[in-house]
Amino acid sequence: MALITVSGYPSSGKSRRAEQLKTHLEARLRDPGYAGPNLKVSVVSDDVLNIDRQVYNDGRAEKPARAALFTAAQRQMGQDTILIIDAMNYIKGFRYQLYCAAREQKLRVCTMYVAATPEICKEWNASRQDGRAYAPETLDNLLLRYEEPSSMVRWDSPLFTVPWTDDDVPADEIWKAVTEGIVKPPNAGTQAVPKAPTDALRTLEHTTTTMVSAIMAEQTASQGTGGPVTLSLSATLRQRLTLPARNITLSELQRLKRLFVTVHKKAITLGTTEKGAVDWSETSIADKFASYIEGNLKP
């Protein structure tokens, strides 16, 4: 249904804001006036995944921790879930990765930026009594590395900023974004490329060779009068096409066959980004080759 990415400085109050938002969303879903789909609200965070704050002391340890967060988010993304990612999400590339994963699932997206000054974050971090405080040097390093969200980039938009001075989150605006916002299609670059059947190359070569032989046989029988003809390619396959009123040489047909096969071999071996499944059956190949011949044979 939707992905809400929470971002902000460490110890800026992100978890409190995420809990406030979760409470508001669940209240709206329980409201008797709500007539939408049956949804649940889930939160994925470092705390839920038991990721220790110490991983942010070392870049090599941080990378698998961030991967664990991303994997957990992917598992919970779905049309029946409003998912809140409660973490720093301080790297814009990581926010873009979450955005692309959400688009793959056809989810609405938005970002909640929990804003607080570095001084406030340091004060709140020092006062933590839950054992989840950042080491002072780690906190300073993360504050310097933080990449602030921007409403000007698509993966952070729509962006809702919540200052530390506000008592609550903008629940009405976020609710509208996750229930009425635009669902963007998946990025073409991230879509899985449909694979051709294992026998597609053999079918392509066999069908085009059979058609060339059938055209030459039909031309011999009709003395090159041309016009609409029906080729018998197998016991079950018949193909209609229109031939020009002249003698077609075998070299002409062989040249067209080579060009046609070369183009379609590339589509088979490298894949295709055509929407929907690509049909590599004998009938489909015969139809395409017939159209190709009609369009490329000179009258």
Rank of each mutant, 00 (worst) to 15 (best):
10 P>A: 08
10 P>C: 07
10 P>K: 06
12 S>C: 15
13 G>M: 14
15 S>P: 12
18 A>G: 10
20 Q>T: 13
22 K>N: 14
22 K>Q: 15
22 K>F: 10
23 T>Y: 14
24 H>V: 14
30 R>C: 08
31 D>A: 12
33 G>Y: 01
33 G>M: 01
36 G>Y: 02
36 G>L: 01
37 P>R: 00
37 P>D: 00
39 L>D: 02
39 L>Y: 02
40 K>G: 04
40 K>Y: 01
41 V>Q: 07
41 V>N: 05
41 V>K: 09
42 S>G: 02
42 S>L: 14
42 S>Q: 11
42 S>Y: 11
46 D>E: 11
46 D>T: 07
47 D>N: 13
48 V>L: 15
48 V>H: 14
48 V>Q: 15
49 L>Q: 13
52 D>M: 04
52 D>R: 13
52 D>Q: 13
53 R>M: 06
56 Y>W: 13
56 Y>C: 02
56 Y>D: 06
57 N>A: 11
58 D>H: 11
59 G>Y: 01
61 A>F: 03
62 E>A: 10
63 K>P: 00
67 A>R: 08
67 A>T: 06
70 F>T: 10
71 T>G: 07
71 T>V: 10
72 A>Q: 11
78 G>S: 13
81 T>P: 01
82 I>R: 01
83 L>M: 09
83 L>N: 08
84 I>T: 10
84 I>P: 05
87 A>D: 15
87 A>R: 07
88 M>P: 06
89 N>F: 04
89 N>K: 02
96 Y>E: 09
97 Q>G: 06
98 L>Y: 10
99 Y>W: 15
99 Y>H: 15
99 Y>A: 01
100 C>E: 14
100 C>N: 12
